[in-house]
Each structure stands twice: as C-alpha cells, then as structure tokens.
C-alpha cells in the first residue's frame, strides 16, 4: 500500500513535469513557424506620396502584391469612397491585380484609365471596372495616412470610412 502511493506520487510528479515541458515545447514550436520579425516589418510599406507626379502611376510592392498609387491632376474628379485626400491632392490607392484573373493592368495616362492586357478588362482611374470580364472594382489595401506618407498594411480612419462606404466588404 505504501509502495503503491509512492509510485503513484512519482507518476503524478513525472506527469506534471512532462506536461509543463510539453506545453513549453509546443509554444516554442508554434513560434518557430511564426513569420520572422523581418517579414513582419516588411509587411508594412511606407510611401511618401507628396513627391509623386500627377497622372503617373506609382507601383509599390506590399506583401508580394503590386499596389497602384495614382496622384490625381486638378481636372480629374475624385470619387467618394474610392479616392483619398492626402495634403492638397487626391489619390487612388488600389491593389494592382485585375479582379478577373489577377493580371496586372497597365495605366494609360492619355486616357486616364487602366487596361488589362490578358482579357481586355478596363478600369477607370478610381479602379471601377467599366469594360470586359472583371467582376468588381480593384480591391483596396488597408492603409493609414501619416502626414504625407502612406502606410500600407495598417487600417487608418480613412480606410475604415472607405470600407464602410463599400458596405463592409
């Protein structure tokens, strides 16, 4: 009887040690698979938009995706819910992948629109699909405005307002 309880205690003690060790190693293993710090910092792309030239498309890369940043000229009309005002200028900030099959549309600055070479889809300057197979406007990346810089990857109030306008998509 005495032996039994002693063995039982040893068993329980070992179980407790093993459980702590097991949980600790699971945490370590989970963390090993986490994106590296360098990946996390690369998950945010900052662009100084004040220096951009109007009607000339700037393509930034954010999380492996092309991001279109287009500065509007005086005579281009901004679209509520699709364009954003930074300083005195309006900008389109969009994920540059055609919503049909993911090709990258090209900007035609004489016509002020986007044309996708793959299947002929066309988008206006604010990214709204106007011709061809694309089912919806170009997607918007999460962004935050910080003075004259655009931080891609963070959700700022302007982005949230645009999302709310688009129906919370």
């Amino acid at each position: 009887m005495k032996d039994e309880s002693r063995r039982g205690f040893i068993g329980k003690a070992f179980g407790a040690v093993a459980a702590v060790g097991g949980v600790a190693s699971l945490i370590a293993m989970k963390k090993t698979w986490d994106p590296l710090p360098s990946v996390m910092t690369a998950g945010f792309t900052t662009v100084d938009v004040s220096a951009l030239e109007a009607n000339k498309l700037e393509i930034a890369v954010w999380r492996g995706k092309p991001i279109f940043i287009l500065k509007y000229t005086e005579d281009m009309k901004p679209t509520d819910g699709r364009t954003v005002k930074v300083g005195d200028f309006h900008y389109s900030v969009m994920i540059g992948l055609c919503t049909h099959l993911g090709c990258i549309p090209a900007y035609r600055n004489d016509q002020k629109d986007f044309k996708c070479a793959c299947h002929g889809g066309e988008f206006s300057a604010d990214g709204v699909n106007k011709f061809g197979p694309p089912p919806r406007p170009l997607d918007l990346p999460p962004f935050k405005i910080d003075g004259n810089t655009l931080v891609l990857g963070e959700e700022g109030p302007e982005y949230k307002a645009m999302m709310a306008k688009a129906g919370g998509v």
Partner: peptide
C-alpha cells in the same frame, strides 16, 4: 494562413518549411 506560410504570401519561408 500567415502562420502556415510564414509570410503574408507564398514565399521562401513557405518553400523551405
């Protein structure tokens, strides 16, 4: 998805794991 890939998109970390 980010945890499995080790990045926000399929990348080097995804390939090696």
């Amino acid at each position: 998805v980010v945890w499995i890939r080790g990045n926000f998109y399929v990348s080097d970390s995804t390939l090696t794991r």
